[in-house]
């Protein structure tokens, strides 16, 4: 199928883009790498009147390290993040997750901002940002606001972005020294969207864990935090019994949507498996 007709603008700078967006708002779609949008257009599942191509705006391609944060420009591509030593060092969770995203040719175009704004419930980066309690910069001619990942994702393909806003950057706290980051997912084939996945971050403390963050993908209409399980894992030392307890807890904590190929009970089961495997790795690291 071929894309429906639309108009196209490529503003020279960020103010120009914001201005176009302010004028066209809901009738316009932003395009950056286009790896999600063009799929929708090619299937005629979207019909914007105007595409505003922000793909070349240098202002959105910065990768900045501050004392406590890494700020990732919305236009940095999956391949940029994968190749960045800074990301590998300071955001190992993200680094691990990127390896699961699609295939090289897609990673060469797809951007972090585009992925987050698309808000696919099975997207890896969205779950990582939620696990790391990231903040998203949303910019419009009305000004800039920072929205927490937990407030940003509002449903399947639904976000807090207003029609005139651009997701310009993601701010993520750097991992604590000695922190543990584990990303894992179950997919049918390499590069497929996950049937279920998990982004885990924590800091060891006296045989147990503190600062546990546990985000899940592919099991709800958006990435979700497994809060009960997080609390359980912080409530005492980590041992086999607690691993089993946590695995049981998380299965009860998720309520995946109906899907004829992958029944909710199957995805719930997977979440338990993924958590058990993750915590086994933590235990191994403890005993090493």
């Amino acid at each position: 199928m071929k894309a429906p007709d639309f108009d196209y603008e490529r503003p020279a700078d960020l103010p120009g883009a914001l201005d176009l967006l302010a004028r066209h708002g809901a009738e316009a779609s932003l395009i950056a790498g286009g790896q999600s949008l063009l799929t929708l257009l090619n299937f005629r599942l979207a019909a914007p009147e105007l595409l505003i191509d922000i793909g070349r705006l240098a202002a959105l391609k910065q990768l900045v390290e501050t004392d406590r944060h890494i700020e990732i420009g919305g236009l940095l591509r999956h391949c940029d993040l994968a190749a960045s030593p800074l990301i590998a060092r300071a955001l190992p969770l993200l680094h691990q997750a990127i390896g699961h995203i699609a295939h090289p040719a897609v990673r060469h175009r797809g951007t972090i901002g585009g992925s987050l704004a698309m808000a696919d419930p099975a997207a890896e980066l969205a779950a990582c940002c939620l696990a790391l309690d990231g903040q998203f910069s949303l910019l419009s001619t009305r000004g800039q606001r920072w929205v927490a990942a937990g407030d940003f994702f509002q449903g399947i393909y639904a976000t807090a972005l207003a029609p005139d806003e651009i997701l310009t950057a993601v701010r993520l706290p750097k991992g604590e020294p000695g922190g543990i980051s584990i990303f894992d997912e179950v997919a049918r084939r390499r590069g497929d969207f996950a049937l279920a996945g998990l982004a885990f971050a924590a800091t060891p403390q006296a045989g147990g864990l503190k600062g546990v963050r546990l985000a899940l993908l592919g099991v709800a209409d958006r990435p979700i935090l497994a809060r009960d399980t997080m609390a359980l894992l912080e409530s005492g030392p980590l041992n086999q019994a607690r691993v089993e307890q946590a695995a049981a807890r998380i299965v009860g904590e998720v309520d995946p949507p109906e899907d004829p190929a992958y029944p909710p009970a199957y995805r719930r089961h997977l979440v338990g498996v993924l958590l058990r495997r993750t915590l086994q790795r933590v235990l191994m690291a403890f005993s090493a």
Binding site: R10, G34, L38, N42, A105, H108
Partner: peptide
């Protein structure tokens, strides 16, 4: 495209300007 493989169906010709 600019020294990297891409999906030709997921890039608009105008984006290759």
């Amino acid at each position: 495209l600019d020294d990297q493989t891409v999906r030709g169906c997921l890039v608009l010709a105008v984006q290759a300007d």
